Measured scan of single mutants.
Amino acid sequence: MTLTLTVPPGAKVRVRITNENGETTEIEVEPGETVTITLPAGSTVRVEVEVVDPDGRKRTETFTLKP
Rank of each mutant, 00 (worst) to 15 (best):
Gly56Ala: 00
Ala41Val: 08
Arg46Thr: 08
Thr6Gln: 10
Thr36His: 09
Thr44Gln: 03
Gly22Pro: 09
Leu39Met: 10
Asn19Thr: 11
Ser43Lys: 12
Gly32Gln: 10
Asp53His: 04
Arg16Tyr: 04
Thr4Cys: 15
Glu30Pro: 06
Ser43Leu: 10
Pro31Ala: 05
Lys58Ser: 04
Leu65Lys: 00
Glu33Phe: 09
Gly56Trp: 00
Asp53Ile: 00
Lys66Leu: 14
Ser43Gln: 14
Val15Pro: 01
Arg59Tyr: 13
Val35Glu: 03
Gly56Cys: 00
Thr64Asp: 14
Thr64Met: 08
Gly42Glu: 12
Thr62Pro: 00
Val52Thr: 14
Ala11Leu: 00
Lys58Pro: 00
Glu26Lys: 06
Val51Gly: 01
Leu39Ile: 05
Lys58Ile: 12
Val52Ser: 03
Gly56Arg: 00
Arg14His: 06
Pro54Asn: 04
Thr34His: 10
Pro40Ser: 13
Pro54Tyr: 03
Glu20Ile: 04
Pro54Trp: 03
Val7Ile: 04
Glu28Ile: 02
Glu28Arg: 07
Val13Gly: 03
Gly22Lys: 08
Val7Phe: 14
Thr6Arg: 06
Pro67Cys: 15
Glu30Thr: 10
Val52Glu: 12
Thr18Asp: 11
Thr36Tyr: 13
Leu39Gln: 04
Lys58Leu: 03
Pro8Cys: 15
Val35Arg: 03
Arg16Glu: 05
Glu20His: 09
Val51Phe: 11
Arg16Cys: 04
Phe63Ile: 15
Ile27Ser: 09
Glu30Gln: 06
Leu39Thr: 07
Ile27Asn: 12
Val29Thr: 09
Glu30Ala: 06
Arg57Leu: 02
Glu26Asn: 06
Glu26Cys: 06
Thr4Glu: 14
Asp53Trp: 14
Asp55Tyr: 04
Arg57Ala: 02
Asp53Gln: 04
Thr25Arg: 08
Val49Leu: 04
Val51His: 02
Glu26Leu: 04
Ile37Gly: 12
Thr38Ile: 06
Glu23Gln: 10
Val7Gly: 01
Ala41Asn: 08
Asn19Phe: 11
Asp53Ala: 03
Pro40Ile: 15
Asn21Ala: 08
Asn19Asp: 05
Lys66Glu: 15
Glu30Ile: 12
Thr24Val: 05
Glu50Gln: 03
Leu3Phe: 03
Pro54Cys: 13
Thr38Leu: 11
Asn21Val: 07
Gly32His: 12
Gly22Gln: 09
Val29Asp: 14
Pro54Asp: 02
Glu28Thr: 05
Thr38Pro: 07
Thr60Ser: 02
Val52Gln: 06
Thr4Phe: 13
Glu50Val: 02
Phe63Val: 15
Gly56Pro: 00
Thr60Arg: 02
Asp55Gln: 03
Glu28Trp: 03
Lys12Glu: 14
Pro40Asp: 11
Thr2Glu: 07
Ala11Asn: 02
Thr18Tyr: 08
Thr18Gly: 09
Pro9Leu: 04
Ser43Cys: 13
Val47Arg: 00
Val45Tyr: 12
Ala41Lys: 08
Pro54Glu: 08
Glu20Gln: 06
Ile37Thr: 11
Thr25Ile: 09
Ala41Ser: 10
Ile27Met: 11
Thr34Cys: 15
Val35Ser: 08
Glu33Gln: 07
Val13Asp: 02
Pro31Ser: 07
Val49Phe: 02
Asp55Gly: 01
Pro31Gln: 07
Ile37Asp: 08
Val7Tyr: 15
Arg59Asp: 00
Glu28His: 07
Phe63Met: 10
Val52Asp: 01
Thr60Val: 09
Val15Ala: 05
Gly42Thr: 14
Glu26Met: 04
Asp53Ser: 03
Thr64His: 04
Leu3Val: 08
Glu26Thr: 05
Thr38Ser: 04
Leu3Ser: 04
Thr44Glu: 13
Thr18Glu: 11
Glu50Lys: 01
Leu3Cys: 13
Met1Tyr: 12
Thr4Tyr: 14
Arg57Val: 07
Ser43Asn: 11
Thr60Ala: 00
Arg46Ile: 12
Pro54Thr: 07
Leu39Ala: 13
Val47Ile: 06
Thr60Leu: 04
Val52Asn: 02
Ile37Asn: 15
Asn21Glu: 06
Gly22Ile: 12
Met1Thr: 05
Thr18Ser: 07
Ala41Glu: 08
Thr44Trp: 14
Asp53Met: 14
Ala11Asp: 03
Pro67Asp: 05
Thr18Arg: 03
Pro54Ser: 06
Glu61Thr: 15
Pro40Cys: 15
Thr60His: 02
Arg59Thr: 05
Asp55Arg: 01
Gly22Trp: 09
Arg16Val: 03
Pro40Val: 12
Leu5His: 02
Pro31Gly: 09
Arg59Val: 06
Val7Glu: 14
Val52Ile: 09
Val52Pro: 00
Val45Gly: 05
Glu23Trp: 12
Val35Trp: 11
Gly22Cys: 14
Glu33His: 10
Glu23Met: 06
Pro8Val: 14
Thr4Gly: 08
Thr62Trp: 12
Val51Leu: 02
Thr6Cys: 15
Ile17Gly: 12
Ala11Trp: 07
Leu65Asn: 01
Thr36Ala: 07
Met1His: 11
Leu39Asn: 08
Leu65Gly: 00
Pro67Leu: 15
Lys58Ala: 03
Asp55Val: 01
Gly42Pro: 07
Glu28Lys: 08
Thr60Ile: 12
Phe63Ala: 15
Asp53Leu: 14
Asp55Cys: 15
Pro54Arg: 08
Ala41Arg: 09
Val15Asp: 00
Leu5Asn: 02
Asn21Phe: 07
Glu28Tyr: 03
Thr24Ile: 07
Glu33Val: 13
Glu33Gly: 11
Thr24Ala: 07
Leu3Ile: 09
Val45Asn: 06
Thr24Trp: 07
Asn19Glu: 11
Leu3Pro: 15
Asp53Cys: 15
Thr62Ala: 03
Lys58Gln: 01
Glu61Asp: 04
Gly22Glu: 08
Val7Asp: 02
Gly56Gln: 00
Thr24Asn: 06
Pro67Gly: 11
Leu65Ala: 00
Thr2Val: 07
Pro54Val: 08
Pro8Asp: 11
Thr6Tyr: 14
Val45Pro: 01
Asn21Thr: 08
Leu39Trp: 07
Phe63Trp: 04
Pro67Arg: 02
Val49Ala: 01
Thr6His: 09
Gly56Ser: 00
Glu30Asp: 11
Val52Arg: 04
Glu26Ile: 04
Glu33Pro: 10
Arg59His: 13
Glu23Pro: 09
Val52Met: 05
Leu5Asp: 02
Glu26Arg: 07
Leu39Ser: 08
Pro8Ser: 10
Ile37Pro: 03
Val49Glu: 00
Val35Lys: 08
Gly10His: 05
Ile37Leu: 09
Pro31His: 06
Val29Tyr: 10
Thr6Met: 12
Arg57Phe: 04
Asn19Trp: 11
Pro9Thr: 07
Leu3Ala: 05
Glu50Asn: 02
Val7Trp: 14
Arg57Gly: 02
Asp55Ile: 00
Gly32Met: 13
Arg46Met: 11
Thr60Met: 03
Lys66Thr: 15
Thr64Gly: 00
Asn19Ser: 07
Glu26Asp: 06
Thr44Met: 10
Arg46Ala: 02
Asn19Ile: 14
Glu61Ile: 15
Val13Cys: 06
Leu39Tyr: 10
Glu61Arg: 08
Pro40His: 13
Thr36Met: 10
Thr24Ser: 08
Phe63Asp: 15
Gly56Phe: 00
Val29Cys: 11
Lys12Leu: 05
Glu33Ile: 07
Glu48Arg: 03
Pro8Glu: 13
